[in-house]
Design a protein around this nucleic acid. Structure first.
Lengths: 164, 164
DNA sequence: CTGCTTGCAAATAGTTTGCACGTTC
DNA sequence: GAACGTGCAAACTATTTGCAAGCAG
């Protein structure tokens, strides 16, 4: 039931489905259809998906896989170091492969997420370390603000509807 | 344990209950017992409270005030420019008076929130503006990471208690 | 008086969990 | 064959909303 979806060109940390699954086997975890599907979706996509989106994509191939299983699988994959998540505005989380780390900027108005270079917060991290002895987890949160198009539309007036 | 609610005598932008309420009157909003109570709680506290905490504090004086009213009042106060909120890790939000703006660093392990100088993200904001035409709303999100004490205790091993 | 505000309860949204059953090792 | 993983439904958390009654202006 696997029509070989991901071509998986380059080698590396967890650039192939089997590579990621090996990380699970290594921890004594079992490899199941559901887990294989979740991994392959993450590899095939841009690596920036919500749990719901992962579930939808997985169910395209494996209709039986339940959303809660996706959550549990993502959790396991995170513990295995294969994926990590970012918290977005409304309690929603986004998952990305750890071998493709980047920072996220989220537009507060339209919800659009822009992917940024991973180093944008480097200087800030250094400062927090020095001044507050706080070790920043730079990729774990989004940078909120407004994208160009939303600023063009609403000008300076803060939108009050739609989101919070 | 709240023996002294702090009288808050100093003048300023919205440093007094009446000052904040004036901002509401100015917009044609009505001033009610509930709203007065919410404002006074925000002024009395450190200005860094969740909606639930605000409600709890309000209900100490005005037991009838409902949590949903607190949410609505905070929303109105935000529109009036008196308060603003930050999103914390788990979809929870924290409210602060706008006349005391600061950045927040939240420990991912113990949940402790450290208040930082408001300018820590200035350079990042400039860069996003220049490179992505993205206007960062610097105080609207927390900087997640690990505080010194949690790093000392857990070393490198990630704590996995409580919420994710 | 008139309509903004409120209290309550019920609805959301995203995520988590208990349990019986199916699969993987 | 036993333990682990899964599907389903129900629980949970933080927040929002519809509606009738209440109060400010």
């Amino acid at each position: 039931m696997e029509p070989a979806p991901a071509p998986a060109p380059a080698p590396g940390p967890a650039t192939t489905v089997e590579g990621a699954l090996d990380a699970l086997r290594h921890r004594g975890e079992r490899v199941t259809t559901a887990r294989r599907a979740v991994v392959s979706v993450l590899l095939a996509g841009d690596g920036d998906l919500s749990a719901e989106e992962v579930a939808a994509a997985v169910q395209r191939h494996e209709p039986g896989v339940h959303l809660s299983t996706v959550y549990r699988t993502l959790e396991v994959l995170e513990e295995a170091g294969v994926v990590s998540h970012v918290h977005l505005g409304h309690g929603r989380a986004l998952y990305q492969l750890t071998d493709d780390p980047h920072q996220h900027a989220e537009c507060d108005l339209c919800g659009q997420v822009i992917e940024l270079e991973p180093d944008v917060l480097e200087a800030v991290a250094a400062r927090l370390r020095a001044e507050h002895d706080f070790e920043l987890d730079t990729r774990h949160f989004p940078l909120l603000g407004r994208c160009a198009s939303c600023r063009a539309v609403s000008g300076g007036a803060p939108h009050r509807h739609g989101r919070r």
